[in-house]
Design a protein around this nucleic acid. Structure first.
Lengths: 174, 174
DNA sequence: TTTTATTTTCAATTTATTTTGAAAGTACAG
DNA sequence: CTGTACTTTCAAAATAAATTGAAAATAAAA
């Protein structure tokens, strides 16, 4: 009975890991990095590099690099187990915190550089009234205004939703 | 004077196209597809496949495939010019519509399949009170609740922002 | 119908990304 | 210090993704 249950759980974890990997790769995140993240999210305890290697069938170098990247993304943390020389790792399990973290990180890393470029594109030499120039600067200005607006909205939503975990916690008693 | 101006505009367009390509590729979109999209967004008139090939230095097959993909994404439309056998293409220029379109498409194509898998992972054989099983199902349920919540929020934001274009239009007169 | 302009397809190639694994680096224990 | 356990690095290899270009398909014109 215990084995049956364990089997099924392992299977479910496996499917979750695979799907999270697919989702990640569709959004420009290394599939293996997403899988490591998924593995740690559903792990009931911190895992070592060897655990990760074994469970995902990947090499030591690969496991190490992806764990480092996840730590950089602040999605994974090192765990020190006293009396053990190995390093262990855990992932943030509250999906709201995960989402917030990813949104902020990607904004900083990928959206901000775009906005910096857009800023530069505002002054174009010559006649600002040429139809072509006007159309271009208007499109750029439009994107900038949208970005500013989106940023504010994001902050608002994040702040408004900070009680999400709590309200969620309440539902467990319904 | 005209040439100087044209030069600068071309340069600015070029930079925008490059940056949009980088941004796209970071978010899992083919760099060239993003570049074609950018090119059409800042084009003052519809472009043919040959125009796209020339401006981005890409092959006919590549240009054709990426334009088709963009049409599938509903970000680009075919334009018929009477008396011309060639097909021309334009992109939606209102960035709000572009963003809304992309959000809906990616949700449908990439997020929904994930949610479908999560649904299946809810019934695990055996004792639901095992700490491990409980932790796993709770994590999954958490993601599902988050997704449902995010979906509602997205709809709300989109509806609340539908006047964005109008309020934006007003700013032009300030 | 036949010719001609244009679009589409896809196998082969090129380019980019990911992964490996073994050597080098670190740091703790004795 | 020396040996041992573990982590990090990175050039080479493997894999995945994008691109080409020419042939096949399509459709308008003559």
């Amino acid at each position: 009975m215990f084995l049956l249950c364990a089997m099924k759980l392992a299977e479910a974890k496996e499917q979750f890991i695979q799907q999270w990997g697919i989702l990640g790769s569709q959004w420009g995140i290394n599939r293996t990095m997403a899988q490591v993240h998924a593995l740690l999210m559903v792990a009931s305890q911190p895992l070592s590099t060897d655990d990760i290697m074994e469970q995902l069938n990947i090499s030591r170098g690969n496991a190490n690099m992806n764990v480092r990247d996840l730590i950089n993304w602040q999605l994974v943390q090192k765990v020190i187990v006293s009396g053990d020389r190995k390093e262990y790792f855990t992932a943030e399990k509250d999906i709201w915190k995960v989402a917030t973290c990813i949104m902020y990180q990607r904004k900083k890393r990928e959206l901000d550089p775009m906005l910096k470029v857009l800023d530069k594109l505002n002054d174009i030499e010559g006649d600002k009234k040429t139809a072509e120039v006007k159309a271009f600067t208007e499109t750029i200005a439009n994107i900038q205004r949208f970005a500013g607006h989106a940023e504010k909205t994001l902050d608002t939503v994040i702040r408004a939703e900070e009680n999400w975990f709590f309200s969620n916690f309440m539902k467990m008693f319904k």
